[in-house]
Amino acid sequence: MLRSEYRRRKSINVGENSKTYLIYVVSILLAIVYLVPFYWTVVKAFRDSIFANFPPNMNLFSQTSVAYFLANLKTVWGFGDFPLWYFNSVFISICVVAGSVFVGMLSGYAFARLKFPGRDYMFYAVLATLMIPFPVISIASYVFMLDLNWLSTYQGLILPQIASALDVFIMRQYFLTIPEEVELAAKIDGMKPWQIFFRVSAPMAKPAIAAATIFSFIGSWNNFLWPLMEVHSLNMFTLPLVLNFFKGANGTQIYWNQMMTVNILTMIPTIVIFVVFEKYFIRGISMNYTR
């Protein structure tokens, strides 16, 4: 009796275990599929050869050297106005993130907490803009910028990206989950509405701010189409344009090792942002305030 019970449990365990193994195997395979391009990017940046071989040489220690990487780095950094372009990307992204998160906070809060006529319809209208792909409105935006005489300017690159329905949505959903009583308590403690927002509600929404920051940073940092249309002069280039430009810089021959070095430089800020905000990120996108 006892033994059969023991066997039964053991067989359940075996079933459970094989399921666990399967999950691990699939996860690891997926991780490899995602990581291989990055691995190759890094390996290639440390090589001297400009060619992309097939099948690629994946050996980390064959034909690689730090000296090659530094040489590649030097070439790339000296290419055109690379430091300026890098600055453009960083500056624009910081402005877009700051602006869109701030606007998202304010309007998200208004949609979540304030009472005004047509509030929910306005929110749905904002939400609906998420469904419209950017290319659809890109021509209109372009003409708008042309009329304003904002082509090839920072404001022309930044402002259209600040109105982010995604950030508004993230912030609103999060504010909805914060218990109203905390704000009532703040009212009784003598805070005026704007103080309540900045000293209580906004600090409580840190995870949502982190999520919005990551999303809008990635959106702005990787944005290719808008700068491509908006920018007509070399000194306003951003990194995605540079990547594209770099590809053809040597005629038909792509210098893959230098190209990958540019890639690595381009990836660094994204990784930094993610590491800094990762702690809040999961809580932010699950959109739930938990005590």
Binding site: E181, V182, A185, I188, P203, M204, R291
Partner: peptide, 11 residues
């Protein structure tokens, strides 16, 4: 006022 869910400032 004292609230059911305490309503303290978590931060």
């Amino acid at each position: 006022m004292v609230f059911q869910n305490f309503a303290l400032y978590p931060h």
